[in-house]
């Protein structure tokens, strides 16, 4: 579905900053329907990598093939049409404060020139899917972080994309909300058969969501494979240290568990409510 071949990205030197190489020859194959995680520390190049897939960043060299088309050769006119086949979800949600939940989800369809009837037909079923039926006419300022991210996910799905790009989608959320959002994404992957690329710095996200994982460090993929294999036998030092962080989180988490939680909801339902 997605193939990156020897993708390099260099930011040219500007006044005040030296030349910066973000990606040094990335090769990555992502099959249809698969959830692939890309994990790494800040500055490893993972955000640049995901932006090379929908050409928010143009690779300096190498090719990016999505669904059989080399997208790096697309013209400025065709680029928006290509991007409408991909949905993207962001760390900081990036919702329009001036639009209601419904109108935010409708935006990709509006941009594609859909009629009001087509928009209603596409958006109305998405509201229950992400558990926001009762927030239809609310503004983002009236929503919690988790609810905002649900709007972000519904918006990314509204144009019926083949691929969902997730850029640190749970990094601004608390642990309980993170679990709910990850469950929702997993559920969407099963129901709609979407291909997903998930950028994260947390191994817990990879563990909960991904089939396969690529570990990045300094613009290179240092280790790649099935999630179970990587967790069982991490070879590269970066992978080991990321897993060590996870263990620390686990320890911290178990300490936190000793304080009684109130009003615990099961994170299993897509319609789970949060704060």
């Amino acid at each position: 579905m997605i193939r990156l071949s020897n993708v390099q990205k260099t930011y040219a030197a500007r006044r005040g900053s030296d030349e910066h190489v973000a990606l040094r020859g990335i090769n990555l194959d992502i099959a249809a329907g698969e959830i692939v995680g890309v994990i790494g520390r800040s500055g490893a190049g993972k955000s640049t990598l995901i932006r090379c897939i929908n050409l928010l960043e143009t690779p300096t060299s190498g090719s990016v093939t999505v669904d059989g088309t080399d997208v790096t050769t697309l013209s400025k006119r065709d680029l928006p049409l290509f991007r409408r086949q991909l949905g993207m979800v962001f760390q900081h949600f990036n919702l329009l404060s001036s639009r209601t939940v419904f109108d935010n989800i409708a935006l990709p369809l509006e941009l594609a020139g859909a009629t009001k009837a087509e928009i209603a037909k596409a958006v109305d079923p998405l509201l229950p899917l992400v558990g926001l039926e009762d927030k239809r006419d609310r503004y983002p300022a009236e929503l919690s972080g988790g609810q905002k991210q649900r709007v972000g996910i519904a918006r990314a799905l509204s144009s019926n994309p083949k691929v969902l790009l997730c850029d640190e989608v749970t990094s601004a959320l608390d642990p309980e909300t993170t679990r709910q959002i990850l469950t929702l994404l997993k559920d969407i992957n099963k129901r709609l058969g979407l291909t997903m690329v998930v950028i994260t710095h947390e191994m817990a996200v990879v563990k909960a969501l991904c089939d396969r994982v690529a570990v990045m460090d300094a613009g290179v993929i240092v280790e790649e494979g099935a999630v179970e294999g990587i967790f069982a036998d991490p070879k590269h030092a970066t992978t080991q240290s990321l897993l060590a962080d996870e263990f620390m989180d686990f320890r911290a988490g178990s300490d936190a568990n000793s304080t009684p939680k109130t009003n615990t909801t099961t994170s299993g339902t897509a319609a789970g409510q949060e704060g």
Binding site: L56, P80, R83, N94, L111, L165
Partner: peptide
Amino acid sequence: VDGGLIEAAQAMGAR
């Protein structure tokens, strides 16, 4: 206006 919104719009295929 937050630059993230411009990026999000472009990712949605906004001209």
